[in-house]
Amino acid sequence: MIGQLLANGIILGATIALGAIGLTMTYNILDFANFAQGELLTFGAYFALIAVSAFAGVHSTFGALSFGWPMVVALLLAAALTSLLAILVDWLVFRPLRRSSIQVALVIASFGASLLLRHLVVLIWGPQPAYYTTNIQISTQILPGVRVTPDQIFLVALTALLVVGLHFFLSRTKLGKAMRATADDPQLAQVTGIDVARVVRWTWIVGGSLAAVAGVLYGMTVQILPEMGFNLILPLFAAAILGGVGSVYGAVLGGLVIGIAENLSVLFLTPTYKPAIAFLLMIAVLLVRPTGILGKPKL
């Protein structure tokens, strides 16, 4: 029982981690909590649905997985379109407000953007849940008492691959280092000659792409729903805060902790309270280590 819950926790945690990375990056580089991050996951899932539906006649599956190359195309398309959407929202909503004298205009705007995007999803795709495939996957036993589907194994493997890839991007490439530098000190980055506007664009591209992949993976293993991203926003924030806002690896760790905690909670609570667990855990962390874990104390 516990083994199975742990496995479920890692699977959910991987999805949360991918979304939380994007949240952490925008938080650090643009200096605001983006409440519309959840909707990037939602849009990613729906963009992929477009591609999957377009290839509906193609029957291709990779081994035991429920999908074939149309899903690869769908993932790439979702990442590209979600990045574009993120840049568009930044350009239309956040960029003009960066000049505002109202300090939290960006956060309020992101809250409004999240509502708007959610309504747009309902407007375009309708309120009913959707699925990439109607095939039922058979789960296999990988450890005594732990059963997972091939898709779930793929999910965890892809997440691990993306995190490693991101690590190399941030630590080895010029652009990646410039992103870390800008996150560290935007004004100094400007003085140093870093093209901050370009860094901001790439922040949305990386964060948006990871969010899209997270959305597709969530849609693949759970379901696609207009509220899916909003339902994940608390776990995303909790993961980012738990991991110490600012570090990619912290977000991954935070995601895993939240995913596992939410799943273990069914031992004590009805499963419908899963999202509240993330919240309680976050409050607990804030109470115990209000500044230590966050690293950025309020002055």
Binding site: Y27, F32, A33, F35, Q103, V104, V107, I233, L234, F237, I241, P275, A276, F279, M282, I283, L286, L287, P290, T291, L294, K296, P297, K298
Partner: peptide, 22 residues
């Protein structure tokens, strides 16, 4: 308020939306 009011404004924001969802 007790756990979040000592921190950056954003954390109160996250906590309040958390209470709304809960």
């Amino acid at each position: 308020g007790i756990p979040t009011l000592r921190l950056r404004d954003d954390y109160l924001a996250i906590a309040t939306i958390g209470i709304a969802i809960t």
